[in-house]
Computed example of a mutant assay.
Amino acid sequence: MIEAAVRPAPKPSREARAADLRRHQRVKVSLLGRYMLADRREFPCQTVDMSPGGVRLTCAALGEIEERVVLYLEHIGRIEGTIARLLPGGFAVRLSATLRKRDKIASQLTWLANRDSLGLPEGRTHERLTPHVTGVVLRLESGREVAARIIDISMSGVALTTATAPPLGTSLMVGRTPGRVVRYFEGGIGVHFMLPISPDLFHEGLTL
């Protein structure tokens, strides 16, 4: 009986190895967003680092290991996964995504990582407008409500006049839109939205 020669498995090509590395390379990137746990509770979050296969988050409410999580991240959009491990001040998520989606995330992360060094325009810099209705109520996490008036607004944030200036980094609701206080100016504050306003909703008749 003649045994067939056992041939060693072919080594992956350089292109395949590069694609695999690209899918799993972790990038330090700070993106605002929201996440929904299995019980449908939603909370704000911020990324610490991310790869096409996983993301590490800073957040207040921790879930359980292997709990399903739905994430909405600026520049990335909607992604899903399961909690892989709990960390001080947050947790790490193992993403569930198709190969096509992972490649898309890899491209987005590459752009984000190189944006500053290459002098590329920042994705959240948008045209600003003043809506017809400028009065709005700010709702702090404590439940306190503060009256404010919109100076101008973009798809990514809003400048407001208000008699109360919450601390920088404070999460709050501008009407029904979640955001975070990112700057002060005389007589008001700047708020960055957790997720950009959809372009088809961005017009002078919008309400937050």
Rank of each mutant, 00 (worst) to 15 (best):
L87G: 08
L62V: 07
S107C: 09
L109E: 01
K104N: 12
E122Y: 13
T161E: 15
I153K: 09
L109R: 08
R115L: 12
R78H: 10
Q108Y: 11
A106L: 10
R100L: 14
E122H: 14
M155W: 06
E66H: 13
G135Y: 10
F91M: 15
P88T: 12
M173S: 01
R128A: 14
R180N: 00
T82R: 14
A163C: 03
V146W: 00
I76W: 03
W111H: 15
G53L: 10
G175I: 04
G81S: 02
L109A: 05
I150F: 06
E74P: 03
H75F: 12
E127N: 12
L140C: 08
E80Q: 11
T125K: 14
L168T: 01
Y72F: 14
R149T: 11
L168M: 07
T58C: 12
V133E: 09
V69D: 02
A165D: 08
V55D: 04
L168W: 00
V174D: 01
A113R: 09
V182L: 01
G81L: 01
P178E: 05
L160K: 00
T130L: 09
D116F: 08
R68V: 00
I150Y: 02
A92M: 11
A159K: 13
P121D: 03
L109H: 03
H126A: 10
H75T: 15
H132R: 15
R144M: 10
D116Y: 04
G179N: 05
I79Q: 01
L172G: 05
I105H: 05
R78P: 02
G63S: 02
A61N: 05
L109T: 04
A148K: 02
L57Q: 04
L112P: 01
L140M: 12
T164Q: 13
A61F: 08
R124M: 03
L138W: 06
T98S: 15
V181I: 09
E74I: 09
T130P: 09
E64D: 10
P131E: 07
P166Y: 02
H132M: 12
R102H: 01
E145H: 09
V146I: 13
L109I: 07
V174P: 00
